[in-house]
Amino acid sequence: MIFVLGQLGGGDEAADEPRGGWRSGDARGVGGWATVLGHEGVRLRVREVDPDDLRLLPGTTYLFAESLLTRRSARRVAREVRRGARVVAVGQDARRVLRALGEPVPTLSGPPGTAVPARRAPETRATDRVARQGPVWATPPPGMRELLVLDATAPQDRVVAGELRVGRGRVVLIPDRGIVDNRGIVRADNAAFAVAVTGRGRVVALRPRDGASAGGLPPRAVAVVLLLALAAGAALVSRGRRLGPPVLPDEEPTPGRSGYVDALAAVLARTADRTTATRRLRARGRTVLARRVGLAPDAPDDEVRAAGLRAGLTEADAAALAGGDDGPGRTADLQAVGRALARLEGDTR
């Protein structure tokens, strides 16, 4: 159980975190970006998602920066952008989304340098210079709103980052992952730019899990389900019947009604006319026994006694039930007849 709780609780997250992930401290990770967002009061939620079930909601910014998008999942993202979602795609994920949208991919690269805001926009209001080292567009996609371009020392304007309106949605594209990874986020105004393009609303980083495991579940969830199923099976086996012959008790347990019969007989024994009480109980017992085994109403005492034994009565109770009606009633006879009647009536109900 402790192991299962550990699996559900997440265990060692670093063991499952990609080197370029949102909790990674590796140079190529984006854990620094997540930390900066937290310091600015923006809560970043990291969610794994099956590309077949990918749905992006309006009013939320979705980040893709772990280089985990495949062609299939990138097509899903492009479809959701057209429906009204806002996406920020970085590095290889940005190039995948561009191809899914049918837009040109930046191919030019040069020595590391700086980029400057293309215009005073909300995304670049707090940005003067951004350190860069990756690819740029020589000719940006038609309709792109330029956010960052190469500085004035470059031979001509080259677009470093921009925003596209696609259908009812928008996608911010930053092909140069070095701007926001753990090495670049601490340089120049890179952190301010990363926070600005993210925004201060609801932010979710999606992690597609193409072919993660059976049924689209992550391996940890599959392990937990299997462990719970194993525990349930063990519980069923432990509560089931054991194999082999039953263990019989050394003595037959006392019938549950015997205490009641003894108490009833004690009450009857205190009556002054015990003979009449015994005769009436015996007559009732004979009637029940005759109905059960098919005796004649006036069967001899020996037949009544034998039938009582076959019906499961003890020797004393069967003899008391078959006894004659002569002589004063005795307490022992009264109790025995009462037990016999209770046993017969209990078995026939």
Score class of each variant (00 low, 15 high):
7 Q>Y: 07
8 L>R: 14
8 L>H: 05
13 E>D: 05
17 E>V: 03
17 E>T: 07
18 P>C: 09
20 G>W: 05
26 D>Q: 12
28 R>K: 11
31 G>K: 09
35 T>Y: 05
40 E>P: 01
43 R>N: 06
46 V>W: 00
50 D>H: 13
53 D>H: 13
56 L>S: 03
64 F>I: 04
75 R>Y: 10
89 A>G: 08
96 R>Y: 13
103 E>V: 03
108 L>E: 03
118 A>H: 07
127 T>E: 09
128 D>P: 09
131 A>K: 11
135 P>S: 13
137 W>P: 00
137 W>R: 01
150 L>Q: 09
160 V>M: 02
164 L>G: 00
185 I>Y: 00
187 R>S: 04
193 F>C: 05
197 V>A: 07
207 R>S: 12
215 G>Q: 03
220 R>G: 01
224 V>H: 11
226 L>R: 15
231 A>V: 15
233 G>M: 14
251 E>W: 12
255 P>F: 01
257 R>D: 09
265 A>Q: 10
279 R>F: 11
284 R>D: 13
284 R>Y: 12
287 T>F: 13
291 R>K: 11
297 P>E: 10
300 P>W: 07
301 D>G: 15
305 R>L: 08
305 R>C: 04
307 A>C: 04
320 A>F: 08
321 L>E: 01
322 A>D: 01
326 D>E: 15
332 A>S: 11
338 G>S: 14
342 A>R: 02
343 R>V: 15
345 E>T: 12
